Amino acid sequence: MTQSTPLKQSAMNPTRVESLAEDLSRVEPGFDAAGFVTAVVAQLPQLELKARISCVADALAAYLPDDVGATTSILVAALPPHDDATFTGSDFGLYTYAPYSDFIARYGCNGENLDSSLAALKQMTKHFTAEDALRYFLNAFPSETMKAVAEWSHDPDYHVRRLASEGTRPKLPWSPRITLPADAAIPILDELFSDNSRFVTQSVANHLNDISATDPELVLATLGRWRDSRNQGRKEMEFIVKQALRTLVKRGYPGAFAFLGLSIAPAIEVIELRLDPAAVAIGGGLGVDCTLRATSTTTERVLIDYVLTYPRPGSGQGEVVFKGTTVELAPGESRTVSRIQPVRSTSSRRLSPGAGRLQIQVNGRRIAEAAFELLPSR
């Protein structure tokens, strides 16, 4: 089996460092490209991804002018050409340029350089998302930064518009937490939900999903306003709603199902739930066959999720909800839905051998369960 290259090595490696050095040399003739590359490459092997990015940023500070504003100008000038009309790269961008915004966050987040730093992030995010860096400014200079973010929400470049939503997310994964209220960016999202770029609307939906952890009613009210405005196409609005409510649906929040036009107490019963095999090794797949029947006098439309309860290393149990499928059942109709449910450990979910169970969740209500045995990985 061919092993994939770890992200830290593909994202920030000697080749990418050399590429940066070449770009910088073209705009700053006095730049010691060889010394810069040597200093960085010597440190990379023992560093993880974020540390690699910071290592390059520190080297930029060491090999470019002491004046942060001057270095910021050099970094912006060294960026390759970018034209949205012909852009063919990754929406997220190339990790090659991640150290640029990291430099701005750690060296340019101050009153003296505030305007030039924010202007630089606007340009840098077109080449690699500056969402991490922006959060330092939101914490240190919330009013000034949110004013810039509001302007970005109208920018012609969709990378910049996406930064306005993504950088202000309350729970942006793997990023610094921000001290703004969770609803601080609702006016920004009001501008962006009707965007014509999926890269932007995906971020808007994820932003609302973050807010749902603390204020689900605000999320429902906001989605209702947007849907009623008809400023977004029907299919894209359906996408935003589905993505924004995904955590509330998994949690079984009644208001989410009401918003989707679904019953919170559907007349559905499980007449058979079968797991095959009944014992599965960690990393394997659990076969699930579930037969449901509608007991109502009208057609029932239901969302089926799968709740996996598993033993954790040491003691205790963990739980995770997996998205299933949507089915419509006519009165008295029975139907079997089947899937192979992966049972594997992840960086945030560690499984241990022992007794587990799988529950069927229908429109947020758990109506059937079956036990299985989790075996050591092979």
Score class of each variant (00 low, 15 high):
237 M>V: 07
290 C>Q: 05
299 T>P: 05
274 R>I: 04
304 I>N: 08
304 I>F: 05
286 L>M: 00
273 L>V: 02
237 M>N: 04
303 L>E: 12
258 A>T: 14
258 A>V: 13
283 G>T: 00
301 R>F: 07
233 G>P: 07
320 V>F: 07
305 D>A: 12
315 S>R: 12
266 P>T: 07
261 G>E: 03
316 G>D: 02
222 T>D: 03
232 Q>P: 02
251 R>L: 13
295 T>G: 11
306 Y>G: 02
311 P>Q: 01
235 K>L: 11
227 R>W: 06
249 V>P: 06
284 G>P: 03
282 I>E: 02
229 S>G: 10
235 K>T: 10
243 Q>W: 04
275 L>T: 01
315 S>M: 14
290 C>P: 01
279 A>E: 12
281 A>I: 01
267 A>T: 14
282 I>G: 00
251 R>N: 09
254 P>S: 09
233 G>S: 08
239 F>T: 12
223 L>P: 07
239 F>Q: 08
268 I>V: 15
270 V>Y: 03
290 C>Y: 00
223 L>M: 08
303 L>P: 06
257 F>N: 10
274 R>D: 11
283 G>S: 03
224 G>L: 12
301 R>V: 15
290 C>H: 02
266 P>E: 05
252 G>L: 11
230 R>P: 02
287 G>N: 01
256 A>D: 05
285 G>D: 10
229 S>F: 02
254 P>V: 08
270 V>W: 03
295 T>C: 13
308 L>H: 10
291 T>S: 06
266 P>A: 06
225 R>I: 03
303 L>D: 09
301 R>L: 10
259 F>K: 13
235 K>W: 00
299 T>S: 10
222 T>N: 05
233 G>N: 09
313 P>C: 03
236 E>T: 07
300 E>K: 09
294 A>H: 11
268 I>Y: 02
269 E>V: 10
251 R>W: 14
230 R>M: 08
247 T>A: 07
228 D>W: 02
302 V>I: 15
262 L>F: 05
269 E>P: 04
230 R>E: 14
321 V>G: 05
296 S>P: 08
245 L>K: 06
321 V>I: 15
267 A>R: 14
221 A>C: 10
234 R>K: 14
262 L>D: 05
314 G>S: 12
321 V>Q: 10
287 G>P: 01
220 L>A: 05
277 P>A: 00
290 C>S: 09
260 L>G: 04
269 E>H: 06
224 G>D: 15
289 D>I: 00
237 M>K: 09
305 D>N: 13
291 T>A: 08
294 A>Q: 09
239 F>N: 12
260 L>M: 13
237 M>C: 09
224 G>R: 09
252 G>A: 06
297 T>D: 11
273 L>C: 02
265 A>W: 03
229 S>K: 09
244 A>W: 03
291 T>F: 01
303 L>C: 12
